[in-house]
Design a binder for these strands. Structure first.
Lengths: 226, 226
DNA sequence: TTTCTGTGTGATACCATTATAACCTCTTTT
DNA sequence: AAAAGAGGTTATAATGGTATCACACAGAAA
């Protein structure tokens, strides 16, 4: 589920935003001033930030700068009517979009979805890896073994791709859960075992150039010999 | 590296254009009104200008005239749907090409490249694809199956064409919504499912050389075997 | 060896995702 | 105005990936 950080000091507006966004299926965290905003940004690692410009303690631009130092999480600015210069400034400083108050909820939802949608293609690594008789193509989502296609579900593909993109590196189960399943995932680490097992079923005896190895009390690695 | 000046007052559209163009390796400068456009034109001396007609302060034609006074930097106009007269007028006044909103990013990239390469308008790309017993002709808007015409609505044609122009590549629903339905579309992604279903009804059992495949938790692809 | 703890495996049920059908709305045609 | 077609939405059914459990098994330590 996508997480959204709503930074807005007006409780009424914040409340309203939270309500509508939750109704659309987002996980919403409210912040009511700049300091809190930044703290919660680091804590919850949201997929998107709705950021009011006029804030107590630290204004929106300060928060935006701090967020930009940390990465490229999409940010939509909330500006009061007529703050035209603010708009341009905000966008120049790295916001992805802006909405002018008073806004219609329909518009907010639309822009949130648009910005999240745009972020997606960039997030998809979509690459291709080849080892001996194994080919992992995330572009067409095809796993090939000895030149033969092997139908493989998304999660297994992602796991294998992730392991294989750093050959011989050992990943702990928690690392894999974080990096393949996502940070907001809190399931059992046995889950990784199961997926490794399924991959092994598909990949056993193919090649002696590589294999999925268990590293006791640590995790797994995609081992390449030679 | 080629520099492109994007003159577009709608932040959403501008942002999207910037993103896609950067991804293609261009250096992109955004301008949000006519005055800024001209200032940045002189400042950055771009290799090409993408120019929206409807602009605040000074409209696209004004900017175009000024640019033409300075030289023959290629200009591609962005026009809203149905502004047919604008198209002709724009070209007469010295634009090199035009694109009608809502546009597909694929089309924009294609025309940008064409104009930069030849200094000439993109003759509409071949816009015809053939696979075994299937022929998709976007020129005459005809879908042929086994040499027989199959009446097919516009959206279905566009979707099929888009999928088929990158065989085996998986497109997410959101990608398809952006690239086929256009960036200003904010509908439900189930819409894609429905159109795929309708296409399948028309295309089932034609050939074993290709098919429209579902990729679980990802999207769809036009799969070609062999 | 025994014991302890971590890991592999099979079975199962849940639930998110997708397919399908039916329904609306809007536009064009007759 | 009625009919027909396109495009989109919603409701419901079908699908099948995934998480989790339980237990067997294996490696490490004593």
């Amino acid at each position: 589920m996508k997480r959204i950080l709503v930074v807005e000091d007006d409780r009424n507006i914040s409340q309203l935003l939270q309500m509508y966004l939750k109704k659309e299926g987002y996980e919403v965290t409210p912040a009511y001033d700049g300091g809190e905003a930044y703290r919660l940004f680091e804590e919850t690692e949201p997929n998107l930030v709705l950021l009011d410009i006029m804030l107590p303690v630290m204004d929106g631009y300060g928060v935006l700068s701090l967020i930009r130092e940390k990465g490229d999480t999409p940010v939509i600015l909330l500006t009061a009517k007529g703050e035209t210069e603010d708009k341009v400034g905000g966008l120049r400083k790295g916001a992805d979009d802006y909405i002018t108050k008073p806004f219609e909820m329909r518009e907010v939802i639309a822009r949130v979805e648009a910005v999240l949608r745009r972020g997606q293609p960039a997030t998809k690594p979509a690459r291709k890896l080849t080892f001996d008789k194994l080919s992992i193509d995330m572009e067409s989502m095809v796993l090939e073994v000895n030149g033969e296609k092997v139908p493989t579900p998304l999660k297994e593909m992602e796991l294998l791709y992730h392991l294989a993109s750093a050959p011989n590196k050992v990943f702990t189960r928690n690392q894999l859960l974080d990096e393949v399943w996502g940070i907001s995932y809190f399931g059992d680490s046995r889950t990784v075992d199961v997926h490794v097992k399924r991959l092994r079923e598909k990949l056993e005896g193919i090649s002696d150039q590589w294999s999925l190895e268990t590293v006791w009390r640590v995790g797994y690695k995609f081992e390449v010999r030679g």
